[in-house]
Amino acid sequence: MKIKSKTGIMKLQTQYIIMLATIATMMSCRKDNYDEPGVLLQGHIVYKGEPIQVEYNQVPFELYQHGFGKTGPINAVFAQDGSYSVLLFSGEYRFIIPNGQGPFKWKQTAAGAPDTTIVALNGSQELDIEVMPYYMIRNPRFSKTGGNIAGSFTIEKIITDASARDIESVSLYLNKTQFVSGADNVALKTMNGSDITDPNNVNLSVAVPTLNPAQSYVFARIGLKIAGVEDRIFSPVMKIDL
């Protein structure tokens, strides 16, 4: 038998490769690929229409869609200003906020599990989620005096029935970026809840530390810790020029 020359094999392989590539190009990228999800569900978490301000990346919610075998949540979190957005397919979803999350009460079933809000998606939709916060921070005002930032605000107690909770503390946070919270700050001033004499006029003041690298502004925010609740409720973030 004659042995094929090396170049002969090479030629053959090249032909095959080209052929395979052509087939692959023609056959793929059509039937086997799904469209990406394109239906936008967005909105805010609100109390009487007013967005609830929370900490970045700390208050999650879950969407479930039944009917496709295993059930698992689509996980997402609320932004600082209480907004959320998810890209989904049309269909029926169940929306929950897991137990113990958020500075508010989420409705529960009799068995103590978080109750669901059913979301029927048929095209993009705006949906505000109504919850009961324990407190709201009203009229936050920030001012710069000398090297200090002062914040004053009013605290409104929303839940006053048997499940009402006390204020553990209030804090004024400063940060260099727009993400301002207990985890992200360059300076903070905390006052214990028991030291608040007049909830209608709470004042906090904190010195602006040396910023490195220097910048001519800071972001300020007020957070309220509710006794026995992990997540704080916040005021909107305010940019203050120094």
Partner: peptide
């Protein structure tokens, strides 16, 4: 998902 009898952790 495999065993719906497993309850999830708190918080």
């Amino acid at each position: 998902a495999n065993n719906p009898k497993i309850v999830r952790q708190p918080n």
